[in-house]
Amino acid sequence: MDNDITIDFIENNLNIFHKLYDVIRVVDPITKRVLLYNGNTLVEKASSCFNEIGKESICDNCISIRALKDKKTYMKIESLDNKSYLITVLPIEVNNKTLIVELIKETTDSLFYGHSLDGKGCKVNNIINDLKLMTIRDSLTDIGNRRFIDETLPIDMKVCFKKDEPISIIMVDVDYFKRVNDRFGHTTGDFVLKELAGCLKQCIRNKKDWIGRYGGEEFLVCIPGADEKAALVIAERMHERIAEKKFIHNNEDIKITASFGICSTSNKDITVEEFLNLADKKLYEAKNSGRNKIVF
């Protein structure tokens, strides 16, 4: 089929394509604008291509650009909000200009891997979710890892600022953790970190709050929508819970304390790095002034 009649073919056979795909569109891959083809005239719509599946920015792996450069058809699976989308793109020539036809299909429950369809495990969406979970979860403490923090914190900041709400973070660091490893061994140290993460998880308010392992024995607690007063209440709750907790491993009773640094902001101009640095400074104030305390 000649490329110059591809759009006409699609328009004349939409019923066939709509059974295969949820969205059919023509895209200018350079401007990332969606186009309409009416009466041999290309008309630009007022939406960006990536808005169609709920994204706020261009995909890191834009296969439309790749299809434009290579003059080839490409396919990829895009995962967003626990849903999977199969995206097929093919280049076409219209009015001496190369455009891209994008065909999008939600495949959350309809795309399978392998020949067996008798179990949930063979759904590609489940495989994607499992792989994603492996990349963002800390295997020891079963909370978010540094990658999870780096991906999630900027989004939560953006959402809060858009709603004109504050956001707070708490840096938590285990006091004298090296002494635990030196005296009891790294296996016991791992046990302490895992138990501590459990203590922190018990103190957050709801599903919007989250905890990540920032590195080593340091944790980050994110509380979207909370001002400094609300964050202080949660930090005090965590401080008390750790003080009451009995860390017993291999018949050893291990005393643990932690230091806390809190930072709250509503400043839309603050960067993620600046936000983290401010909380980190408060944490080091707590540690340098005697440890086992909260600074905000």
Rank of each mutant, 00 (worst) to 15 (best):
I65F: 11
L68R: 09
L68M: 15
K69F: 07
K69D: 10
D70V: 06
K71M: 09
T73I: 12
T73H: 08
Y74A: 03
Y74T: 00
K76R: 15
E78Y: 11
E78L: 13
S79K: 11
L80G: 02
K83E: 10
L86F: 14
L86A: 10
L86N: 03
I87F: 11
V89K: 03
L90R: 04
P91M: 08
P91Q: 12
P91C: 11
I92F: 13
E93Q: 14
E93I: 15
E93F: 13
V94N: 05
V94A: 03
N95K: 15
N95A: 13
K97S: 13
K97N: 10
I100R: 05
V101G: 11
E102N: 09
I104V: 14
I104L: 14
I104D: 08
K105Q: 12
E106L: 07
T107S: 12
Y113W: 14
G114V: 13
G114R: 12
G114N: 09
G114I: 12
L117G: 04
L117S: 07
D118R: 06
G119V: 05
K120L: 06
K120S: 11
G121A: 08
C122L: 07
K123S: 10
V124Q: 01
N126S: 04
N126F: 03
I127L: 14
I128R: 11
L131Q: 09
L131W: 03
K132A: 04
M134D: 12
M134Q: 13
T135L: 06
I136H: 05
I136A: 03
I136G: 01
I136R: 09
I136V: 12
R137P: 00
R137A: 02
D138W: 04
L140Y: 02
T141N: 06
T141Q: 06
D142N: 10
D142F: 02
I143G: 02
R146N: 05
R146P: 01
F148L: 13
I149W: 00
D150V: 01
D150C: 03
D150Q: 09
D150N: 08
E151M: 15
E151A: 14
E151R: 12
T152A: 11
T152L: 10
P154T: 13
I155D: 00
D156K: 10
M157Y: 08
M157T: 08
V159R: 15
F161Y: 10
K162P: 00
K162L: 14
K162R: 15
K163G: 09
D164E: 12
E165A: 15
E165H: 15
I167S: 05
S168A: 03
S168W: 01
I169V: 06
I169L: 10
I169R: 01
I170A: 05
I170F: 06
I170Y: 04
I170L: 06
I170T: 05
I170G: 04
M171R: 04
V172W: 09
D175A: 13
D175H: 10
F177H: 04
F177Q: 02
V180M: 03
R183V: 03
G185R: 12
H186V: 00
T187E: 01
T187Y: 13
G189Y: 07
G189F: 10
G189C: 03
D190N: 04
D190P: 00
D190L: 00
D190G: 02
D190T: 00
F191Y: 12
F191K: 05
F191P: 00
L193E: 00
L193Q: 01
E195T: 09
E195M: 03
L196K: 02
L196Y: 04
G198Y: 01
G198L: 01
C199H: 03
C199E: 02
C199N: 10
C199T: 00
L200T: 03
K201H: 02
